[in-house]
Amino acid sequence: MNDSIAFFSGFGPKDLWFLTQAAWQTLLISVLSISGGTILGIFFGWILSESKVVGAITVGFILDAFRSVPLIIQLVLFYNLFNVIGLAVSPFWAGVTILGVYTSALVANVARGGIEAVGAPMRRAGRSLGMSYLQTMRYVVWPIGLRAVFPSWVGVALGVLKDSALVSVLGHPELLKVARDLITRTQQPLLVLAVAGAFYFALSFPISRYAAHLERKWQS
């Protein structure tokens, strides 16, 4: 029965390389969807803060739906929707797109909070100093609002980094998918899971530490 050796072989250095590549995929998906989602989310947040009634019923309602439906359902649903309308999208880009829109729904709330954290008197003061609307936004609202909501934004980003694991349902070989495949082959679940977990920890822990550091620096 030497054949079985080919199917079930132990965890080797090559597999560590596999997992490293998979972690790279996870990082790539996260960075793309977080940056895209943040830009989109700031725009939505601006709409929500400027237009309290119309914005809340249209944009607010749609974004709220994205926050109220499990991401995994959204991924399967929209990936199939892309197929239904005849768009051939790779699992990677479908995942990035859906995760990006999901991120924007979370960031919109944060961004709105940031804009509203800067009180109307402060903005009026900016305007009466002769600044244009855009200048007030850029030199008054942005720096103050950013400091107010930066911690929540980091929280969102870390959440998305972890949620990127769900792109595995579309079949893209990111960290958790590769880990699962390796478990099936090596039959050494604890080792593989420990390595995969260490990768996630290595990705997210430094970010949360750096954010805490930045927060302390800004407060002083």
Binding site: L176, R180, P189, L190, S204, F205
Partner: peptide, 22 residues
């Protein structure tokens, strides 16, 4: 607390399925 907050929930589920299986 740090494990629960710094790894994906799906990873934690995998731990309870494959991990405890070990």
């Amino acid at each position: 607390v740090e494990t629960a907050r710094n790894t994906p929930a799906l990873f934690q589920l995998f731990f309870f399925s494959f991990g405890l299986g070990a």
